[in-house]
Amino acid sequence: MVPPIFTTLPNFILIKDLGLLNTYLGIVLPGLLMTPFAVFFLRQFFLGVNSSLEEAARIDGAGRVRIFFRIILPVSKAPIATLAILTYITSWNDYFWPLLVGKDESVRVLTVALGIFRSQTPQGSPDWAGLMAATLFAALPIIILFTMLGRRVIDSIGYTGVK
Protein backbone atom coordinates (compact mmCIF):
# COMPACT_ATOMS: atom_id res chain seq x y z
CA MET A 1 0.00 0.00 0.00
CA VAL A 2 1.25 3.47 -0.85
CA PRO A 3 1.16 6.03 1.98
CA PRO A 4 -0.89 9.11 1.05
CA ILE A 5 2.05 11.44 1.54
CA PHE A 6 3.72 9.93 -1.53
CA THR A 7 0.72 10.72 -3.74
CA THR A 8 0.28 14.27 -2.45
CA LEU A 9 2.68 15.94 -4.88
CA PRO A 10 1.43 14.17 -8.03
CA ASN A 11 -2.17 14.83 -6.98
CA PHE A 12 -1.40 18.49 -6.34
CA ILE A 13 0.23 18.87 -9.76
CA LEU A 14 -2.75 17.17 -11.40
CA ILE A 15 -5.27 19.38 -9.58
CA LYS A 16 -3.21 22.47 -10.44
CA ASP A 17 -2.99 21.50 -14.13
CA LEU A 18 -6.75 20.89 -14.22
CA GLY A 19 -7.33 24.37 -12.77
CA LEU A 20 -9.09 23.03 -9.68
CA LEU A 21 -7.10 24.83 -7.01
CA ASN A 22 -9.34 26.66 -4.52
CA THR A 23 -12.41 24.62 -5.48
CA TYR A 24 -14.36 22.01 -3.58
CA LEU A 25 -13.95 19.63 -6.52
CA GLY A 26 -10.17 19.92 -6.20
CA ILE A 27 -10.41 19.02 -2.52
CA VAL A 28 -12.77 16.07 -3.03
CA LEU A 29 -11.59 14.54 -6.31
CA PRO A 30 -8.34 12.77 -5.27
CA GLY A 31 -9.99 10.93 -2.40
CA LEU A 32 -13.18 9.93 -4.19
CA LEU A 33 -12.92 6.12 -4.18
CA MET A 34 -9.57 6.30 -5.98
CA THR A 35 -7.41 5.24 -3.08
CA PRO A 36 -5.36 2.05 -2.90
CA PHE A 37 -7.51 1.06 0.08
CA ALA A 38 -10.65 1.18 -2.09
CA VAL A 39 -9.08 -1.05 -4.73
CA PHE A 40 -7.85 -3.53 -2.12
CA PHE A 41 -11.15 -3.52 -0.22
CA LEU A 42 -13.30 -4.16 -3.31
CA ARG A 43 -10.84 -6.69 -4.72
CA GLN A 44 -11.04 -8.74 -1.54
CA PHE A 45 -14.82 -8.65 -1.67
CA PHE A 46 -15.04 -9.63 -5.33
CA LEU A 47 -12.66 -12.55 -4.76
CA GLY A 48 -15.15 -13.83 -2.20
CA VAL A 49 -18.18 -13.64 -4.49
CA ASN A 50 -19.30 -17.12 -5.43
CA SER A 51 -18.50 -17.81 -9.09
CA SER A 52 -21.56 -20.03 -9.41
CA LEU A 53 -23.70 -16.87 -9.49
CA GLU A 54 -21.88 -15.69 -12.60
CA GLU A 55 -21.92 -19.15 -14.20
CA ALA A 56 -25.67 -19.48 -13.64
CA ALA A 57 -26.25 -16.13 -15.33
CA ARG A 58 -24.10 -17.17 -18.31
CA ILE A 59 -26.11 -20.38 -18.66
CA ASP A 60 -29.27 -18.26 -18.71
CA GLY A 61 -27.79 -16.27 -21.61
CA ALA A 62 -26.71 -13.07 -19.87
CA GLY A 63 -23.75 -11.13 -21.25
CA ARG A 64 -20.93 -9.60 -19.22
CA VAL A 65 -22.57 -6.19 -18.89
CA ARG A 66 -25.90 -7.67 -17.79
CA ILE A 67 -24.14 -9.97 -15.29
CA PHE A 68 -22.34 -7.00 -13.81
CA PHE A 69 -25.38 -4.75 -13.48
CA ARG A 70 -27.96 -7.42 -12.56
CA ILE A 71 -25.93 -9.77 -10.36
CA ILE A 72 -22.55 -8.45 -9.22
CA LEU A 73 -23.56 -4.86 -8.48
CA PRO A 74 -26.64 -5.71 -6.34
CA VAL A 75 -24.59 -8.25 -4.38
CA SER A 76 -21.89 -5.65 -3.75
CA LYS A 77 -24.14 -2.87 -2.42
CA ALA A 78 -23.04 -3.38 1.18
CA PRO A 79 -19.26 -3.23 0.52
CA ILE A 80 -19.67 -0.21 -1.77
CA ALA A 81 -21.74 1.55 0.90
CA THR A 82 -19.13 0.65 3.51
CA LEU A 83 -16.37 1.98 1.31
CA ALA A 84 -18.33 5.20 0.72
CA ILE A 85 -18.80 5.67 4.48
CA LEU A 86 -15.13 5.00 5.26
CA THR A 87 -14.06 7.36 2.46
CA TYR A 88 -16.40 10.04 3.77
CA ILE A 89 -15.02 9.72 7.30
CA THR A 90 -11.44 9.87 6.06
CA SER A 91 -12.15 12.92 3.89
CA TRP A 92 -14.07 14.68 6.67
CA ASN A 93 -11.13 14.30 9.05
CA ASP A 94 -8.44 15.21 6.51
CA TYR A 95 -6.45 18.34 7.28
CA PHE A 96 -3.35 18.50 5.08
CA TRP A 97 -4.91 18.10 1.62
CA PRO A 98 -7.64 20.76 2.09
CA LEU A 99 -5.02 23.09 3.59
CA LEU A 100 -2.79 22.58 0.56
CA VAL A 101 -5.44 22.85 -2.17
CA GLY A 102 -8.01 25.20 -0.64
CA LYS A 103 -6.06 28.30 0.29
CA ASP A 104 -8.97 30.64 -0.44
CA GLU A 105 -11.27 31.49 2.44
CA SER A 106 -14.38 30.65 0.40
CA VAL A 107 -13.45 26.94 0.15
CA ARG A 108 -12.00 26.47 3.63
CA VAL A 109 -13.20 23.25 5.25
CA LEU A 110 -14.01 22.87 8.93
CA THR A 111 -10.82 21.07 9.97
CA VAL A 112 -8.64 23.79 8.42
CA ALA A 113 -10.85 26.51 9.91
CA LEU A 114 -10.36 24.99 13.37
CA GLY A 115 -6.60 25.14 12.95
CA ILE A 116 -6.75 28.75 11.83
CA PHE A 117 -9.16 29.61 14.65
CA ARG A 118 -6.72 28.18 17.17
CA SER A 119 -3.80 30.18 15.80
CA GLN A 120 -5.60 33.53 15.39
CA THR A 121 -6.50 34.33 18.97
CA PRO A 122 -5.30 37.77 20.03
CA GLN A 123 -4.64 36.87 23.70
CA GLY A 124 -1.86 34.46 22.84
CA SER A 125 -3.58 31.40 24.19
CA PRO A 126 -6.50 29.87 22.30
CA ASP A 127 -10.12 30.34 23.31
CA TRP A 128 -10.41 26.78 24.60
CA ALA A 129 -14.15 26.89 25.20
CA GLY A 130 -14.85 28.13 21.68
CA LEU A 131 -12.37 25.69 20.18
CA MET A 132 -13.86 22.70 22.03
CA ALA A 133 -17.39 23.74 21.02
CA ALA A 134 -16.31 23.99 17.39
CA THR A 135 -14.51 20.64 17.64
CA LEU A 136 -17.66 19.00 18.98
CA PHE A 137 -19.58 20.55 16.11
CA ALA A 138 -17.01 19.12 13.69
CA ALA A 139 -17.23 15.65 15.25
CA LEU A 140 -21.05 15.47 15.37
CA PRO A 141 -21.62 14.30 11.76
CA ILE A 142 -19.17 11.43 12.21
CA ILE A 143 -20.66 10.45 15.57
CA ILE A 144 -24.17 10.45 14.12
CA LEU A 145 -23.04 8.49 11.06
CA PHE A 146 -21.29 5.91 13.21
CA THR A 147 -24.25 5.43 15.56
CA MET A 148 -26.63 4.98 12.62
CA LEU A 149 -24.47 2.83 10.36
CA GLY A 150 -21.68 1.40 12.54
CA ARG A 151 -23.14 -2.10 12.87
CA ARG A 152 -23.84 -2.26 9.14
CA VAL A 153 -20.26 -1.30 8.29
CA ILE A 154 -18.82 -3.93 10.60
CA ASP A 155 -21.19 -6.61 9.28
CA SER A 156 -20.42 -5.84 5.64
CA ILE A 157 -16.67 -6.19 6.12
CA GLY A 158 -17.18 -9.91 6.78
CA TYR A 159 -19.79 -10.29 4.02
CA THR A 160 -19.03 -13.16 1.64
CA GLY A 161 -21.53 -12.63 -1.17
CA VAL A 162 -23.56 -15.79 -0.55
CA LYS A 163 -26.72 -15.90 1.53
Rank of each mutant, 00 (worst) to 15 (best):
A138E: 06
G158K: 12
I143R: 00
S125P: 08
L83C: 04
S106Y: 14
F117Y: 09
A133C: 09
A113G: 11
Q44P: 04
G115W: 00
D155P: 01
P122S: 14
P10N: 04
A129W: 13
P79C: 04
M1T: 14
P4R: 13
P74V: 04
N11E: 10
P36G: 11
I85L: 04
L14C: 13
P36Q: 06
R152L: 07
E54K: 13
S156W: 00
V2Q: 09
T35C: 02
S119R: 15
A56C: 06
P4T: 13
L73G: 05
G124P: 02
L100P: 05
R152Y: 11
I142L: 08
L136A: 15
F41T: 03
N22M: 08
F6T: 15
L145T: 01
I27M: 02
K16F: 11
K16P: 04
T87W: 02
A81L: 14
G130Q: 06
A81Q: 10
D17N: 14
F68D: 09
A129C: 13
A57F: 01
L73F: 11
W97F: 05
G115Y: 02
G31N: 01
W128R: 11
G19C: 03
G61T: 08
P98D: 03
A38G: 04
P36V: 07
R151E: 07
L32R: 06
E105F: 15
W92L: 01
I157M: 07
Q44S: 12
I116D: 06
P141N: 03
A78Q: 10
G161F: 02
I144N: 00
L73S: 08
G150M: 07
L149C: 06
W92F: 02
L29C: 05
F45C: 02
R151Q: 10
G26N: 03
L83Y: 03
F117G: 00
V28H: 09
N22L: 06
W128M: 15
M132C: 12
Q123G: 15
P126A: 09
K163A: 11
V109H: 02
S76A: 15
S51M: 15
L14V: 14
L99R: 09
I27G: 00
A138I: 03
N93Y: 04
K77W: 12
I85Y: 00
E54N: 11
L100I: 12
G48K: 12
T90P: 05
S119F: 12
G161E: 04
P122K: 13
F117V: 03
A113T: 07
L18Q: 08
A57V: 03
V101I: 15
F68M: 14
L100G: 04
A129R: 14
F46C: 10
G161W: 01
L140P: 01
L25G: 13
I143D: 03
N22W: 05
I144Y: 00
Q120R: 15
R58D: 10
L20S: 05
N50W: 08
V28T: 14
P30A: 02
M1N: 14
D17E: 15
P36L: 08
R118Q: 12
L73N: 08
G19M: 03
K103I: 10
